[in-house]
Amino acid sequence: MSSASQSRLWDVHRLPSAEGRIFLVTGGNAGIGYFTAEQLAATGAVVILGSRDAAKAKAAITSIRSRVCGAHVRHLQLDLADLSSLKTAVDRLDLDQLDAVVHNAGVALDDLPRRETKDGHELMFGTNHLGHFVLTQWLAALLSAAPAGRIVTVGSFAARSERLDLGDLQSTQDYRPKRTYGRSKLAQMCFGFELDRRLRTAGSTVLSVVAHPGGALDSLTPSRPPVHAATPGERLRALPTGLLVQGKDAGAWPVVRAVLDPEVQGGQLWGPRVFGLRGDPRREPVPSHMADPAVAARLWAASAELAGTDPHLGFR
């Protein structure tokens, strides 16, 4: 599909109805996850915010309801850093089917020391990648029960410049916070592409799609108090950078399109139109280091072993 036809067919401000569908957004209480949830709620769908912090989730729900008349939104207690809790969390959904999950929640650290989850995994890799890897297993039956289930993994522009160290996935030998974060997002994206290959092999109706927000800054993001508030001074100082990047409301656009657009196919990558940093959502070529099936297979096997989970993730 050409970029011209893409923009003609998709309007980020006039989304198609998704009434009757159910979406789960991990980390839906803040940042890209919040705006993804707000935009999806405006389609008439039921939106579930997966969050470990009930107070922040309540604030996000209040904000969404104040902006989306009749919004159907609720909270699911979800802690991706605690792998043993995820089956119980999914059981609490009490659903017969789930139309899509957005794997968005994440931890980003920028200082020392190295930290670990309660399971003993490096915090960013353990939460951002392993948590979603295991969550996918417990959601498999619900996604398969939907007419056209989708798994949308939210990656990061930071992953483009990173490469996985398969011998040190948890940065035990050389921990650098920003690099470890980028690698955790790269692991997520590799997983998203490999998952779709395996779903196609299994003949599943579920699609796995990867999206990223480009350059999305808090200072360019519209206020949603108490979820987010930027001062006039912060917004004024950030205006020049708006030529290159955008706010987190626009950063959610590729994610929302990956969830809703019936033309989206499994194994695709969606991001902002302008240099992958800002603008309307478009399909992007998948970088070779994210699409290498040999690397992805090794990452998959290591992830299943570290998480102690079924390597088929429930899709057979």
Rank of each mutant, 00 (worst) to 15 (best):
L93C: 07
R114I: 03
P293E: 12
E284S: 09
A294H: 12
R14K: 12
G215C: 04
L169H: 03
H312T: 15
F275N: 14
F157V: 15
A45M: 05
K248G: 04
K87C: 05
P226Q: 03
P293F: 07
T36M: 04
T127A: 04
L220D: 05
S144F: 01
T241C: 00
D11T: 01
A148T: 02
Q265I: 05
K248S: 07
T127M: 06
A18S: 15
A42L: 10
G266H: 07
L239A: 14
G215H: 01
S219G: 07
V264W: 09
E122S: 03
Q246D: 12
G266A: 11
H312L: 13
A291W: 14
T153V: 15
G267E: 08
A158T: 06
R197F: 14
S184P: 13
M1L: 14
V90A: 01
S288M: 10
L24V: 09
A187R: 02
G266R: 07
D310K: 01
R21C: 04
E305N: 10
F35K: 05
L130V: 03
A81M: 04
G242L: 11
R52F: 08
R92C: 11
L199N: 01
G50P: 06
A141N: 06
P262M: 07
A159G: 02
H121I: 02
I48V: 11
L269E: 00
D111W: 01
